[in-house]
């Protein structure tokens, strides 16, 4: 029976290729929208089919890493996962179609069906697993990058540190901000910390609460917190929400904040 499949898959390659292409042409638009030229798509398709036929003949995934490499390549190209899964499903269907067009008995047909199933299913699993691993890696890399960019502490002058905040602040990030801020104060022996919220789009009660908490914690360590980068619309929201920020100094720009910080630390910038 193996031989039969092998024979058919190599002898009827053209028929299989024709059917396969017809079935997959619906996917073309989907793939081409993601920066892939029609030529490239044809080429990939051809390669895919070649490999599948070779795989059916060899009947072993582990022996040959070409399939793995092909999956990786497709994923690297940002092709939709659908290209692979549908490709495999189509291949199964086409093979069965072609096989069943031969004159075979019912039992044999069932045998063939099961055999093809056993060949294709592990491949499908493989594809899904590989792509999910690929995405997991991407997501975790992005997460680390985001964490690193999330709350940097920058020493600018002696005893003066700046923490610029960009983007929305949620509870998880607020925690990270507070930890980084306190560690930064200890590490740089800061007397004044400026929190710059120029890049924070919305300041609601929750964000303000987090900022107040951070400022209080900084004060407990013995440093002063200055909130800078308060835009007019943020000043309006803060006041209309009834948030009290009068416990610590606030300034409109980072420059004014630094001037104030210099005053607190008894320092002065001199022009030469």
């Amino acid at each position: 029976m193996r031989n039969m499949i092998n024979d058919i898959s190599s002898n009827k390659r053209d028929v299989i290729a024709q059917k396969w292409k017809n079935e997959l042409s619906t996917l073309k638009n989907l793939c081409i929208s993601s920066k892939i030229t029609p030529d490239m798509f044809e080429q990939l398709n051809e390669e895919f089919l070649d490999m599948m036929i070779r795989y059916i003949n060899q009947n072993d995934i582990e022996k040959d890493q070409t399939l793995h490499r092909f999956f990786d390549k497709v994923l690297q190209l940002n092709m939709p996962l659908k290209f692979l899964t549908q490709g495999l499903q189509t291949f199964r269907r086409v093979i069965l179609d072609v096989l069943l067009q031969e004159d075979v008995k019912k039992e044999k047909a069932i045998d063939i069906y099961q055999h093809v199933d056993r060949l294709i299913d592990p491949l499908l699993n493989e594809v899904v697993e590989e792509s999910s691993l690929f995405w997991e890696k991407t997501v975790s890399a992005q997460k680390t990058a985001l964490m690193e960019l999330s709350a940097p502490v920058i020493p600018v002058l002696e005893n003066i540190t700046v923490m610029p905040l960009i983007g929305t602040i949620d509870t998880e990030r607020a925690k990270l901000i507070m930890e980084n801020l306190l560690d930064g104060v200890i590490k740089n022996r800061s007397l004044v910390v400026l929190i710059d919220i120029t890049g924070v789009p919305v300041v609601d009660t929750m964000v303000a609460h987090h900022i107040i908490q951070a400022a209080d914690a900084v004060r407990l360590l013995g440093a002063t917190c200055i909130l800078v980068g308060i835009r007019p619309e943020i000043a309006q929201t803060i006041i209309s929400l009834g948030i009290d920020l009068s416990y610590f100094p606030t300034k409109s720009t980072l420059l004014k904040g630094i001037e104030h910080a210099l005053e607190i630390t008894n320092q002065q910038l001199l022009k030469k």
Binding site: M178, E179, D216, A217, V218, R219, L220
Partner: peptide, 20 residues
Amino acid sequence: LTGIQPAVAITLIDLGISMR
């Protein structure tokens, strides 16, 4: 008061004690 550790500060803030 001097030398309050970051972890202590965070605990105090979480307890709602800001000792302003």
